[in-house]
Nucleic acid binder design. Sequence first.
DNA 1: TTCCAGGCTATGT
DNA 2: ACATAGCATGGA
Length: 275
Amino acid sequence: MIYEVKDNKILVLDKSQFNPKQTLECGQVFRFGINSDGNYFVCSKCYRATIIEKKDCYEIISNNPEYFINYFDLNTDYNLIKEKLKKNNVLSPMVDYGYGIRILKADSEEMIYSYIISQNNNIKRIQKIIEKLCTTGDVVEDYHAFPMTKTLASKPSEFFSELGAGYRDKFLYEASRFLLNVDLDEIKNKSTDEIYNFLMSIKGVGPKVASCILLFGFGRMEKFPVDTWIEQVYYNHFSDEKKSRPEIQKYFENEFGEYSGIAQQYLFYYERESK
DNA sequence: TTCCAGGCTATGT
DNA sequence: ACATAGCATGGA
């Protein structure tokens, strides 16, 4: 995709495949919002970006443009992917509906903690819990970085039980201790199946959460997470045949192949926005 | 009040 | 290998 970089600013010159609302409002990541001036912002790791809409482009203003070029996956042409996915007649109008969605390349560790919190939960409360978790992160400018494992693993169990995370507090506590002895940079080089098995060994991480972490935290686009919304999409638009969630996941990953995760986002966004 | 939210673990068959 | 109760919390 076409973009230019000037100092702390990225100019995204192609509005046909970049839209901050569509990209952020589908719950890939949870540390985002709208400023008082109406612009979207997003925090990732210790960085923050604000996206401003201009007449013919978007401006991404941040404290690390290089990081956000990768984060928003700006070197990938989503219009090519969209054309391929639109061969599916059911998906096609949903691709048009979420034309500006991009799969974010978020931080793997941040995704692990975030998606442990996400299970059997709603996006608004997930955001609230994560922001509370982040109060222990390093202070950067006027916000908090997402806390590192080193920090979280030093916190007592009371810290986690006071997040309002419900029964998930023990998962977070245990995950922080577990990840202390794990080199995620080494894991990033492994195969998708190997990473999947590693993630599944974390208590509180099941098939859906592991798939989300792989998709958003490890850039594995072939994963298709199935949650309650996707289950609805399946029965509302694809088939009446009753299937378990793993079977629904297999069905879609077989249908959409290496771009399954992107297809999943169009479906998820469409189903939620048109409710 | 009951149901639901980006589900998982534990415990049955 | 598959089915299901129970789980913390808050909003509709």
